[in-house]
Design a protein around this nucleic acid. Structure first.
Length: 125
RNA sequence: AGAGUAAAUCACCUUAUCGCUCUAUACUAAACUUGUUUCAGUAUCUAGAGAGGAAAGUCCGAACACCAUAGUGCAACAUAGUGGUUAAUGGCCACCAGUUGAGAAGCUAGGAAAAGUGCAACAGAAAGUAUGUACAGGUAAUGCUGUAGUGAAAUCAGGUAAACUCUAUGUGGUGCAAUGUCAUGUAAACCAGCGCUUUAAAGCGGCACGUUUGAUUGCUGGAGGGUAGGCAGCUAAAGUAUUUUGGUAACAAAAUAUUCAGAUAAAUGAUAAGGUAUUUCGGUUCUUAUUUUAGGAGAUCCUAAAAUGAGCUCAGGAUGAACAGAAUUCGGCUUAUAGAUUUACUUAAAAA
RNA sequence: CGGGAUGUGGCGCAGUCCGGUUAGCGUACACGGCUGGGGGCCGUGUGGUCGCAGGUUCGAAUCCUGUCAUCCCGA
C-alpha cells in the first residue's frame, strides 16, 4: 500500500455515508472519532475514508479546511502500517470532535492510537 | 519632524522530502463501427496550470436559462436637487444647496404642506370648532397694539410626508438546486375524479382582462417503482496588462501584447531548515542636550573629563506575519484586516 | 444558493403595529416584618444608556437606513 490519498480512496457515495452513520460502529480517541463499517466496493480498494469537522465548533472555513487537511495528511501517512493486513473492505469516516485547532504532531499521535485501537477491535471479533 | 485628510499599490520569501486536482502527452486494457470510444487504468526520472482584496455578507444591478420573442389595467414595492456616466443600478463623477470641522476634507431618502385626511405628551389662557392674564399704550367701545410668561412651534399661521397621501420615474415571475441529456427502473405504466370549445385545468405566490395549450397526448389526487449518479450548462470574458488620444472627472475610443483555477463529503496541502518586515533586549562607536568638577577668559563664553537622557549606525540574542478559502459569471456597495510603500494636501491649540 | 425570525435588568417575557409624562410583569438577589426556628406570606429596595452606528423628528425601545450576532426553513 502506497502513501497516497487520491480520488479513488475518498468516500464519496452519499448512500454509503448514510449507511455508515446509521449502521456503523465507532472508536474514540479524543479528539478523534472513527466510524467504520464493512462493505464491498466495485473497485479494488481496501479502504475508503472521509473526514469531517463540525461547523458548530469552527466558524470559519479556513479553520475547518486546515483541520481536514491535517487529518487527511496523517491518514495518508499512517494507513499503510495498520491497514495492510485487512482482508475485507471497509468504509471510514474520521470526525474531529475537539474545539481547538490542533498541531500536526498531536494529530499524528492520536491517529496512530486510533488505528491501533481499531485493528485490535477488528482482530478480536 | 509630529499630528491629520484624501487616494493608489502590495498582501512574506527560498530550499528539500512526501502528497492533491485539472489539462495535455505517452503506454496498457476493454468494446466494437477498425480508428474511434470509455463515470477504465498506469506514468511526474513527461510538460503546463492551480484562491482573494475582500473569494465573505448576499444589500443593489445585469448577463444567462426556463415559463409566451413577456401582453394590458389595478394593487404592491422601490427610487427622489441638477447634469453626466454605464450593459445596468439605489453605484460612480461634476456642480448647487444644507450641515460638521481650525483646515485639508467628511456627511445628507435634498420633490410637493395653496388637493385632501391625520398628529403634536408636559407646560400654557389658548396648539383652529381658537382666544385670555399682568404691565404699558390707545379707543366712543372691544385683545385694538406692544412687552412679559409657557413651549420645538403662539395671533402671520406655521411644523410634521423615514404619518396616510399626491407627483414623476422604474419593476412580469422563478433561479445553475435554472435548464438539457445519458444511465437505472415492467414507468408517457396502474386506479379514481374532473374536463371535449357554452371554457374545467394549467402556463410558479395578489386581483381582473387578454392570450396559448386543450381527449391516443391535459390536470388533480391515490397507491407504488427507480435514482440520489455521469455529461453538458462551466469558465475567451461588458477579460487582463501597457501606451496614446478625448473629457474637470466618472468614463470612452484606439493600438500592441497575452490566455490566466474549475473542485463537488468539495483540489490549491503537510513537515523540516533558513531568511526578511516587525517588536524587543543589552553592548560598542559617533552626534547632541542637561548637570557636576577642573582650567582659561571676565559677565555667561570657550576647552577637557565624568554621569544621566535622547537619536543614528554597526554586529549579535529573542520574537516570526492580519483578515480570511473560489462553487454559474460579471459590475458595484458594505463589513473584517498585522504591516509595508508611494502621491497630493492641511496644520488651530500644544511642543520644538 | 435562496427564504424567514429574534436581540429589552442575572434568567424568561410584555411594550414596538398607531412615537410623548417614571420602560413594566414573573422569577432571582438584598433588607425588614409575621414565626421559637425553617418554609411560606406581606412590605421595601437594588439592578436597563432597550445588540451597535447613523439619520428623520421638538422628542425614538417604537419610524428609516446600514451593520453585528444568534436561531429556523427549503433538494
Amino acid at each position: 500500500m502506497k502513501l497516497t490519498y487520491s480520488k479513488k480512496e475518498k468516500l464519496k457515495s452519499k448512500k454509503l455515508i448514510d449507511q455508515l452513520f446509521t449502521e456503523g460502529q465507532s472508536v474514540i480517541v479524543f479528539p478523534l472519532r472513527l466510524v467504520y463499517i464493512q462493505t464491498t466496493f466495485n473497485d479494488n480498494i481496501i479502504a475508503k475514508a472521509g473526514v469531517s469537522v463540525s461547523k458548530r465548533n469552527f466558524k470559519t472555513a479556513v479553520a475547518r479546511n486546515r483541520i481536514k487537511r491535517l487529518l487527511r495528511e496523517s491518514y495518508r501517512l499512517h494507513k499503510a502500517t495498520y491497514f495492510n493486513n485487512l482482508t475485507t473492505q471497509h468504509a471510514f469516516m474520521i470526525l474531529y470532535i475537539g474545539k481547538d485547532i490542533p498541531s500536526s504532531t498531536q494529530i499524528e499521535k492520536k491517529m496512530q492510537l486510533l488505528f491501533k485501537k481499531f485493528t485490535d477491535k477488528i482482530s478480536e471479533s
